[in-house]
């Protein structure tokens, strides 16, 4: 078959369902459309439309009474929007600084290792008792558009005001590179096993940390992954999407709406990413500034 024929055959294959649909009676068409649209529409409403409309980032600040300058009379609003908006923006930045410092002080009270991510100066730090023990330069980062909107609204500091607690993690590398060794039966066997080479770990480091208050932090390494690493990365991506879909289904089964997570993606050198992932305890705390 020529290339043209393949194209034609593909078009025919594509047109088949449409032709089938058009050949049906009105009643059958209606029944089909109803059945076809019902499930995706329901899923779209409960997993996309409603979680966006009732996202927790909005309700968090609802208790605070604020004045919207846009709701004021035109002449006053214009004046306010020029000078006072700038001041309000500065205040919003200061409020974020304050929230970040308070969170770090809170982190310093804990004995375990915590993570401090400052996107304004592109650094990631490991801290114990407030002492920075590893500094890493964030080479690139992206975050959800929601963060930008919350900042514009002057509400971001409320969300950042306490340490985030790690709930779930997913990674391309094991948390601890454990090797099992059976004890030798005698000195001869022990002498034989002494010559064994140490395996050098060359694993790629990519991981996702899910924190409370709907925050997801993904860390990627800057170095391009190896072939095996790419495979592992694909598997990790699938697991991550599957985990999100499973969480949504679990929420629906409990008659709750799945919540949208504010995500942040950062890029670090492999060694930094590995060190951070391995150092963080199971319920690690995070202080964040963005």
């Amino acid at each position: 078959m020529t290339r043209k024929n393949y194209g034609l055959a593909f078009l025919q294959w594509l047109a088949k369902p449409v032709v089938w649909f058009l050949r049906q009676t009105r009643g059958v068409q209606a029944a089909f459309l109803f059945a076809f649209i019902l499930f995706p529409l329901f899923i779209f409403i409960v997993t996309v439309a409603l979680p966006v409309a009732r996202n927790p980032f909005e309700t968090a600040a609802a208790s605070e009474i604020r004045e919207n300058p846009e709701s004021l009379p035109d002449s006053t609003a214009a004046e306010i929007l020029t000078g006072r908006r700038e001041l309000a923006k500065k205040m919003a930045a200061l409020e974020i600084d304050q929230a970040f410092l308070l969170t770090r002080l809170e982190l310093a009270k804990k004995d375990s290792i915590g993570l401090v991510i400052d996107l304004t100066d592109s650094t990631a730090k490991l801290e114990v008792k407030g002492v920075p023990i590893r500094h890493c330069k964030i080479l690139r980062y992206r975050h959800s558009d929601l963060a930008r909107r919350l900042r514009g609204q002057g509400r971001l500091h409320q969300w950042l005001a306490a340490p985030f607690i790690l709930q779930k993690e997913l990674a391309t590398l094991p948390k601890a590179p454990i090797r099992i060794k059976e004890a030798p039966k005698d000195t001869i066997e022990a002498a034989e096993s002494k010559g064994e080479d140490l395996p050098i770990e060359q694993r790629d480091a990519e991981f996702t940390l899910q924190f409370d208050r709907n925050l997801t932090l993904s860390v990627e390494q800057t170095q391009p992954p190896s072939f095996a690493g790419r495979m592992r990365e694909m598997w990790y991506g699938l697991r991550r999407n599957f985990s999100e879909a499973r969480d949504a289904v679990t929420a629906l089964l409990h008659l709750q709406l799945p919540q949208h997570r504010l995500w942040i993606e950062i890029e670090l050198p492999r060694e930094d990413a590995k060190a951070i992932y391995r150092a963080l305890p199971t319920r690690a705390s995070l202080a964040l500034r963005l």
């Binding site: 604020r66 004045e67 919207n68 909107r149 514009g152 949208h260």
Partner: peptide, 16 residues
């Protein structure tokens, strides 16, 4: 969130 109108997320001042 990208498509939603910005006005919904307009800056609100604690006081004017």
């Amino acid at each position: 969130f990208v498509v939603l109108p910005e006005s919904k997320f307009a800056l609100q001042l604690r006081t004017t």
